[in-house]
């Protein structure tokens, strides 16, 4: 569904990605791992259009999107849940979710999807009138994912959902992510530092180091690989 080919990207004079290529097959969960500063978030930004690559191509469902603006890419069926959630802090939970569906016009579909989100994250339903900035970390992450789902995307980009969250909450969220993929057939590209959790739900993994893909394999092989175990899984 998503194919990134030899993408280079820079922030002004600072080069961040040096020829990154990866593929995300439809219906799967693919994870992008790597240490801090490797360029994982940059990769997602390039896909969703927040950053334009200096060279290389990005194809979504066969169509080139590397020069498109993020507003246009969203309407193609891709949703980006950014690093640090980036919620609308002074709006309520409900308002955040509504904005997630901004590009859609089908009232009934939106209502259905909102109920679906509340089904995945019941606590959001309880707190729907609460201002987003006052939610706990875990609740905010749930809201961010829910908001991303409201666009009814076929591809969901998740940037470090585990960041700053307690282990129990993280596990809960990852299970929900897995079921989103299985039940609704949403393809997921998951950027994570928490390699073991990510590999547990993904089918394929890429390891990014200083802007280059260092490893690319099925997640089972990655979990067994010596290199990954030492560097990222801690044993």
């Amino acid at each position: 569904m998503l194919r990134i080919t030899d993408v280079h990207a820079a922030y002004g004079p600072i080069l961040a990605l040096h020829g990154v290529s990866l593929e995300v097959p439809a219906g799967s969960i693919v994870t992008l791992l790597g240490p801090n500063g490797a360029g994982k978030t940059t990769t997602l930004r390039v896909v969703s259009g927040l950053l334009h690559p200096s060279s290389g191509t990005i194809e979504f469902e066969g169509r080139r999107i590397d020069r498109m603006a993020p507003e246009a890419i969203v309407s193609l069926g891709m949703s980006h849940v950014p690093e640090n959630r980036q919620l609308f802090a002074e709006l309520t939970v409900l308002e955040n979710l509504r904005l997630g569906a901004y590009i859609r016009r089908d009232r009934n579909g939106i209502k259905q999807d909102m109920e679906q989100v509340f089904h995945y994250f019941p606590i959001l339903h309880d707190r729907q009138k609460q201002v987003a900035g006052t939610l706990s970390g875990g609740e905010q992450q749930m809201l961010a994912i829910g908001r991303g789902l409201m666009a009814r995307p076929r591809l969901l980009l998740l940037d470090e959902p585990s960041m700053g969250l307690a282990p129990l909450v993280t596990r809960e969220i990852f299970e929900i992510v897995k079921s989103i993929n299985q039940k609704q057939k949403v393809t997921i590209l998951l950027v994570e530092q928490n390699a073991s959790l990510a590999l547990a739900i993904a089918e394929r993994g890429y390891v990014l180091e200083t802007g280059r893909i260092a490893l690319s394999d099925t997640s089972a092989n990655l979990q067994r690989s010596e290199a990954v175990r030492r560097s990222y899984l801690g044993y």
Partner: peptide
């Protein structure tokens, strides 16, 4: 729209 690219990133 407003400057796309690095300033938004």
């Amino acid at each position: 729209g407003p400057r796309a690219g690095s300033s938004a990133a």
